[in-house]
Design a protein around this nucleic acid. Sequence first.
DNA 1: AACAAAAAAGTTATGATATAACATTTCTTA
DNA 2: TAAGAAATGTTATATCATAACTTTTTTGTT
Lengths: 166, 166
Amino acid sequence: MMPKNFLPITSTQVFVKHDHRACARSAMEAAHELCAARGLRLTPVREKVLALLLESHQALGAYAVLERLAQAGFRSQPPVAYRALDFLVEHGLVHRIEKLNAFVACNQPQAGHAPAFMICNNCHQVAETPGKRASGTLGKKARAIGFHIQSTVVEAEGLCAACQAA
Amino acid sequence: MMPKNFLPITSTQVFVKHDHRACARSAMEAAHELCAARGLRLTPVREKVLALLLESHQALGAYAVLERLAQAGFRSQPPVAYRALDFLVEHGLVHRIEKLNAFVACNQPQAGHAPAFMICNNCHQVAETPGKRASGTLGKKARAIGFHIQSTVVEAEGLCAACQAA
DNA sequence: AACAAAAAAGTTATGATATAACATTTCTTA
DNA sequence: TAAGAAATGTTATATCATAACTTTTTTGTT
Ligand SMILES: [Zn+2]
Ligand SMILES: [Zn+2]
Ligand SMILES: [Zn+2]
Ligand SMILES: [Zn+2]
């Protein structure tokens, strides 16, 4: 289930120079293994969308994805992109960034499912930190009033260390 | 600056029965005083939008606001609603809920500005908890990698205590 | 009061994001 | 190989948001 040469990139690494070829390749391998393990079909259009998102740590809007799909020879109607994205999000291979109405590939598809995101307003890269559901401050407040959390959105916008320096 | 009879509603109270007339009236008073103190103009359309949002603890989309404005005799072009909402959000009288593309009135306009929200998927009420910027788990992780947070989105969807019971 | 500058509101048009609905094809498996 | 399920193709439309320019109102100054 875990790729042999899996090199999970951590949030610390996204904003610093790293071997992104290896980073993307290992995430794609992880996606293939996860789908195999769960009996899911990573069809050509789904894999292509994931590959597009894995090209960088920037978020892409659905229509940006659609454009690139069309260039690659796929159909170019909105449902083509949205269906593939829906599949990838549903199975945790991609995350939706609410603040941007856009999508990023998940670095660690096999990990727990309540990530938080840091969005750099300058270089537009998005780092994901693993986090568990209802683990932090919000979870505590929710428990205090008997609120049952089903899903969370936790996003911070700001400047990464490199962009502050520049 | 603080209304005489200010009754700040807390996140604990939103989901339980409370004197909402007083709750809304006190928030409106607080808004008037905040605007007076800062030299801001709470024009008729802005006040009406705030009043509409204060009618309940549910979030309203911009076009829902627009509809109600039109019924009240205001113009009905999108910028009418968006401008009023932009003003109210800019000055912390209203918050945007990213997950819903919708807006809720702020209960405590004078408090600090990095609230977290709990959204009940059944009764559609939204509770706000005060929270400070970068105070919790996310803030800690950001500091660890030198990420400078400018704004945050923290939203939890789930079921409030009352809706779990039913 | 008259004027100029700034803020707000009016208006038209369009851009950007997302989904409904139904037809067709492909895959799975019994 | 036939039936059902899953995925894709296609058309159309719903929903959310802003650009750009005009006119009116407010505010501060002469
Ligand atoms: Zn990388
Ligand atoms: Zn950056
Ligand atoms: Zn109330
Ligand atoms: Zn509820």
